[in-house]
Amino acid sequence: MSDPSGGAGPGNAVSWVSQNVVAGLGLILLGVFGVWATGDLPRGTLGAMGPGMLPHWVAVCVAVCGFALAVTGFVRGGEGLQSFGLRGPVVVVLAILAFAVTIRPVSFGPVTTPGLGLIVAGPLAVILGGYASPEARFRELLILALLLTAGCMLLFGDLLNLPIPIFPTALIEAASGKIPSRVMLRLAVGALALIGLGLLLLQRRSSRRAGTDVARHSMTA
């Protein structure tokens, strides 16, 4: 639809242009885009409907709805635009992308990311994602990341035996034949959990309130 940053700056709502007008225009754009994107598909006849028939008409209807919405918004007014946060969307998207490109090797044309497995991708998503909130505190997120990752590795890797990559591919090849993979997984889980719990103890000593919060969470993870 429309670009989040293109709406209005964070803070006060802009009242002179109604929400519905912009939403309607967005829908029109989406509809036109849909018509364009399905333009090269044969539409066929009723007896032998082609692949383009339904999407084409649905896209047209989307645009019509958008037009109606924009008109009602224009005539009747309505709610103003809401403010958009920028930090949240940007950081959360980055965190999810970080997970996606590190969990296993991904190729973008000539570039291939190294597959680092859950042990890296998990904490990356948690810690990076945590910064979407202005209340983020690094140590707290680190503890959460370590304990959650340990829990997930145990659950998905060991108990459920899912083929989700746990370790960096390079590490797996290096350890191949030296340590059975199960043992390596359990050792890593133990190490992560120990570091996490150690940090948690330190944290609790310094600040009791934050500590209890984390403890509750780790218990349920």
Binding site: P114, P163, A170, I172, E173, A174, A175, S176, G177, K178, P180, S181
Partner: peptide, 25 residues
């Protein structure tokens, strides 16, 4: 860095000669 790491690993890999050493996907 990755290449040097990999070559070290490859050396390790050569040492372990009997296939298979780990689960097969």
């Amino acid at each position: 860095l990755a290449i040097s790491l990999l070559s070290v690993l490859a050396a390790f890999g050569a040492a372990a000669d009997t296939y298979p050493q780990r689960p097969i996907t």
